Every structure is written in C-alpha cells, then in structure tokens.
Amino acid sequence: SIEEEIKKAEEAKEKGKTFIHGDFVATTEELLDELLKRLRKKL
C-alpha cells in the first residue's frame, strides 16, 4: 500500500539508506523527500 511505502521511505531516510520504489531510486535525502511528496499525493 502507499502508506507502507511512505513508512519504508521515511525509515530509509532516517537511516541514510537508499530506497527503491519501482524505477525510482532515492539515494539522497532530496530524492527521498521528492518520492515522499509523490507518494503522499497519491493518498
């Protein structure tokens, strides 16, 4: 679910890890923020 993806992305951000969502690879905090923004729009 979208909620689960958001939670996983937030955890990755806290730990400074890379998060992959489909073909979107978030390797930096900026990219994770962008991904979180996109996911929240889908809610």
Rank of each mutant, 00 (worst) to 15 (best):
residue 37 K to Q: 13
residue 2 I to T: 03
residue 32 L to D: 01
residue 11 E to P: 02
residue 15 K to Q: 12
residue 10 E to K: 07
residue 5 E to P: 03
residue 25 V to M: 09
residue 1 S to W: 15
residue 32 L to R: 00
residue 33 D to R: 06
residue 8 K to I: 05
residue 17 K to N: 14
residue 9 A to N: 02
residue 27 T to W: 14
residue 4 E to V: 07
residue 37 K to T: 12
residue 34 E to C: 03
residue 24 F to E: 07
residue 33 D to Y: 05
residue 17 K to H: 13
residue 38 R to S: 09
residue 11 E to I: 08
residue 5 E to T: 15
residue 34 E to K: 03
residue 28 T to V: 08
residue 27 T to N: 15
residue 24 F to Q: 04
residue 32 L to E: 00
residue 28 T to C: 15
residue 7 K to H: 09
residue 31 L to N: 06
residue 36 L to V: 07
residue 9 A to R: 04
residue 33 D to A: 04
residue 30 E to W: 09
residue 30 E to C: 08
residue 27 T to I: 09
residue 19 F to Q: 14
residue 1 S to Q: 09
residue 8 K to W: 07
residue 14 E to F: 07
residue 22 G to S: 04
residue 43 L to P: 01
residue 10 E to Q: 10
residue 18 T to K: 12
residue 37 K to N: 12
residue 2 I to P: 03
residue 14 E to L: 13
residue 1 S to M: 09
residue 42 K to N: 08
residue 26 A to F: 10
residue 15 K to A: 12
residue 24 F to C: 14
residue 3 E to L: 13
residue 7 K to M: 09
residue 38 R to K: 11
residue 5 E to V: 15
residue 28 T to Y: 07
residue 10 E to I: 10
residue 20 I to P: 14
residue 9 A to G: 03
residue 37 K to F: 00
residue 43 L to F: 02
residue 33 D to V: 04
residue 18 T to G: 14
residue 32 L to M: 02
residue 39 L to V: 01
residue 17 K to T: 12
residue 24 F to Y: 09
residue 34 E to L: 09
residue 6 I to D: 01
residue 14 E to C: 15
residue 1 S to A: 10
residue 15 K to M: 13
residue 42 K to Y: 11
residue 2 I to Q: 04
residue 21 H to S: 14
residue 2 I to Y: 10
residue 39 L to D: 00
residue 18 T to Q: 14
residue 42 K to F: 09
residue 29 E to M: 13
residue 8 K to G: 07
residue 10 E to L: 13
residue 41 K to D: 13
residue 8 K to F: 04
residue 36 L to G: 01
residue 13 K to D: 04
residue 13 K to V: 04
residue 17 K to A: 08
residue 26 A to N: 06
residue 9 A to P: 01
residue 37 K to L: 09
residue 2 I to M: 07
residue 11 E to C: 15
residue 31 L to F: 06
residue 29 E to C: 14
residue 34 E to M: 05
residue 39 L to G: 01
residue 11 E to V: 06
residue 29 E to F: 09
residue 29 E to N: 10
residue 16 G to E: 10
residue 43 L to Q: 07
residue 24 F to G: 04
residue 38 R to E: 13
residue 26 A to H: 01
residue 6 I to T: 01
residue 3 E to M: 13
residue 20 I to L: 07
residue 19 F to V: 15
residue 23 D to E: 09
residue 20 I to M: 07
residue 12 A to W: 02
residue 16 G to A: 00
residue 14 E to W: 06
residue 41 K to G: 11
residue 7 K to V: 06
residue 29 E to S: 12
residue 32 L to H: 00
residue 41 K to Y: 00
residue 17 K to F: 15
residue 19 F to D: 14
residue 10 E to T: 09
residue 35 L to G: 00
residue 25 V to S: 06
residue 4 E to T: 07
residue 38 R to V: 12
residue 2 I to A: 05
residue 19 F to C: 15
residue 29 E to Y: 01
residue 13 K to Q: 05
residue 9 A to D: 02
residue 16 G to P: 00
residue 43 L to G: 01
residue 6 I to Y: 03
residue 15 K to L: 13
residue 34 E to W: 10
residue 26 A to V: 07
residue 14 E to N: 10
residue 25 V to A: 08
residue 20 I to F: 05
residue 38 R to M: 14
residue 26 A to T: 04
residue 32 L to A: 00
residue 5 E to I: 15
residue 23 D to R: 00
residue 9 A to C: 14
residue 22 G to I: 12
residue 14 E to A: 15
residue 10 E to A: 05
residue 22 G to V: 08
residue 37 K to E: 15
residue 3 E to P: 06
residue 5 E to M: 15
residue 43 L to M: 06
residue 21 H to R: 01
residue 21 H to Q: 11
residue 36 L to T: 00
residue 14 E to V: 10
